[in-house]
Amino acid sequence: MNQMMKDNLIDLMDIRKCMKEYYPIGQELVRQFEYYQNYQKAAERWKPENKMKYVIGSAVVGVVITPLILIGGLVAAGLYFGFDKIVENKQHQCDLQMKKVEELINKFEKSYEPVQEKCQRLLFSREDYETPMAVDYLIEIIESGRAETMKEAYNMLDEQLHRWKMEEIQNKQLEMQKNQIRQLKNIEADSAASASFSFINMAK
Rank of each mutant, 00 (worst) to 15 (best):
R121P: 06
E88Q: 12
K90M: 14
T66K: 11
K110Y: 10
E130L: 08
P67M: 07
Q120G: 05
E102L: 13
Y112Q: 10
L174I: 07
T131C: 08
G73N: 07
F124D: 03
K90R: 15
Q183H: 03
R146N: 12
T149W: 10
L138M: 09
H92Q: 13
E152A: 11
N155V: 04
T66E: 06
M98T: 05
E148A: 15
K85F: 01
I187L: 15
K99D: 13
Y137Q: 01
K99T: 14
I141S: 00
E127D: 12
H162Q: 14
N179W: 10
L104A: 06
V63N: 11
K90L: 10
T149V: 06
G82T: 12
F83S: 02
V64N: 11
Y112H: 13
I141T: 01
D95C: 08
I65K: 05
Q120H: 12
L96A: 05
E130Y: 01
N106I: 13
Y129Q: 01
F83Y: 14
P132Y: 04
P132N: 07
T131P: 04
I141G: 00
E109N: 09
I181T: 05
R163A: 03
E102G: 03
N155A: 09
Q120K: 14
R121S: 13
L104P: 07
Q170T: 12
G72R: 06
A147E: 06
N186P: 03
T66Q: 08
H92T: 14
N171G: 04
Y80N: 05
A76F: 04
S144E: 07
